[in-house]
Design a protein around this nucleic acid. Structure first.
Length: 369
DNA sequence: GTCCTGACTATCTTTGAGGA
DNA sequence: TCCTCAAAGATAGTCAGGAC
């Protein structure tokens, strides 16, 4: 792809490219030791083998770029129809900002990297901010392949930050694969497929079949799966960060799940909260939580799904606004969280790992109840 | 006018069916 | 024969349209 030609543009030095890769690599490793910018700098230095402290601003900006918040509620006009049109948002583009000499059409170097940070997948639908160039809207709104039939039926105007763009937590097991602690579901799927291709995990004779490597086996708890079932298995590792807004929708899914629910519980006991339970708890990965964590949650329950643990922690962080406003990757622990994680601040990326390290014991051999 | 239902949205891939 | 598109699976917010 674009790789390699980094220095060619002249504005992005090879050194900066290497540093950027180093930063991404360090972040994606989700080390729990990353609690400050200095930690990142040190790890990047040790990874690259040369001093990078003189590029601290560059690193900070790049971290902000990589960890920039997902699409937050934005004025509709910024979104148009394309939910992922982040290019239009006033989000810091590291080089574009720092290297003001960049030609307007010089894209951020993130596009020169193999690892793409959480970014817009489809091209910006309207005028590209980076290219103040004369790029007339090339064509009438391109119809997504799969939406042709729908386009015939309806012309609904959709978009917005919610729905599919809702940020979800990624389970500790899945994080090394998708590279982020929180992503929209769609992005999680995307990153997973990148991982599968990168590691040649598709069965050559039947490409629908996914052969799990060690890492994937931990996640899916099976040696192989198919691409359709994969999403189902993936659901166990996607954690809603905020409680789902109660909705009265009873859609296709619900219809299907009603059947399942009726098998798992008597009709009369069906409740809205039973959504995840309805999958029958025996297929949800359960962990044993420490006494400390149990008391943190204020529960006597010692068995919990990993997803639920992470969800509750993130809920606590959000409710108590513990995210460092000046550095998205840092969580400033309050007293309670500090006691739990044994540190005053912690990298957002490191939380799951620290939890797993200190407070979770995988109930691996618990087949069912 | 309000409430409810359900389609639609994005993401990924491959296969097979159907149309040109 | 080639090309296009639906289907499978999960997800949750949005909104059109129907019912009352």
């Amino acid at each position: 792809m674009v790789g390699g030609q980094g220095g060619a543009g002249g504005m992005v030095s090879r050194e900066e490219q290497e540093i950027a890769r180093g930063v991404e690599s360090v972040l994606s490793a989700a080390s729990p030791n990353l609690s400050s910018l200095q930690d990142v700098v040190e790890q990047v230095e040790s990874k690259l083998g040369f001093q990078v402290s003189h590029k601290i601003d560059f690193i900070r900006t790049h971290i902000h770029y990589l960890l920039r918040p997902p699409p937050q509620p934005q004025p509709q006009h910024l979104y148009h129809k394309d939910h992922f049109a982040l290019e239009q948002l006033p989000i810091p583009r590291p080089l574009a900002q720092q290297h003001t000499t960049l030609p307007p059409d010089h894209l951020p170097f993130s596009q020169q990297l193999q690892f793409e940070p959480y970014a817009a997948s489809p091209p910006p639908p309207t005028t590209s901010p980076s290219s103040g160039l004369a790029s007339p809207p090339p064509q009438p709104p391109p119809q997504p392949q799969s939406s042709k039939k729908s386009a015939q039926k309806v012309k609904r105007k959709r978009g917005g930050p919610g729905g599919l763009n809702k940020l979800c937590g990624v389970s500790p097991l899945l994080q090394p694969i998708v590279g982020h602690p929180t992503l929209p579901r769609t992005e999680i799927v995307k990153q997973l497929w990148i991982y599968i291709r990168k590691n040649n995990l598709q069965d050559p004779s039947n490409k629908r079949k996914i052969i799990c490597n060690d890492e994937l086996r931990l996640v899916f708890e099976t040696d192989s799966t198919d691409m359709f079932r994969m999403n189902k298995l993936l659901a166990k590792h996607i954690i809603p960060l905020e409680p789902t807004k109660p909705t009265n929708r009873v859609s296709k899914k619900s219809k299907a799940s009603v059947e399942l629910e009726s098998k798992c519980a008597p009709k009369s006991e069906r409740s809205p909260e039973s959504k995840t339970d309805s999958k029958c708890s025996d297929i949800v990965p359960i962990v044993i939580i420490s006494d400390e964590l149990a008391s943190f949650f204020g529960t006597d329950e010692r068995e919990m799904s990993q997803a639920e643990v992470l969800r509750q922690i993130w809920e606590y962080i959000k409710v108590n606004q513990l995210e460092d406003p000046s550095n998205a990757m840092v969580i400033q622990c309050d007293e309670k969280l500090e006691e739990l994680l044994k540190c005053k601040s912690v990298s957002a990326l490191g939380i799951p790992e620290m939890l797993a390290h200190y407070h979770l014991c995988k109930k691996s051999d618990t087949q069912s109840h």
